[in-house]
Amino acid sequence: MLFFLSFVVFLIGLYCVATRKNLLKIVMGIVIMEYAVNFFLILLGYRMGGVAPIVTEGVKEAKFVDPLPQAMVLTSIVISIATLAFIVAICIRIYQRYHTFDVTEIRRLKG
């Protein structure tokens, strides 16, 4: 059921990318899809009644959740901020060239 909900978030992001005309709305759709994928990966690694995978004094043999998706999602989050900055930089350059964020307008001017 939770997988289903994370998938709905992904579909909303896809809908946003496909239908919106504003360039920044498209960027926001991409960010929503990133969130949905991160959420899904963490959900895959969760274990019923598990604890965070950190060994503390005394607790040696606890029931840990899966540490592998967490490590991968950690890198994915940091990559997402860098790529977001890259996309925004390109958007600002496009705005400087065409003075608009409208995708149809940009397409028409390009010819």
Partner: peptide
């Protein structure tokens, strides 16, 4: 809640930075 504190720490800081970058763009 899903027992991933490492990801939570990174996510909250990155979220604030993404907010700043997107406000700059808008």
């Amino acid at each position: 809640y899903l027992q991933a504190p490492d990801c939570a720490i990174t996510q909250i800081v990155v979220e604030v930075l993404a907010l700043i970058i997107l406000i700059r763009a808008t």
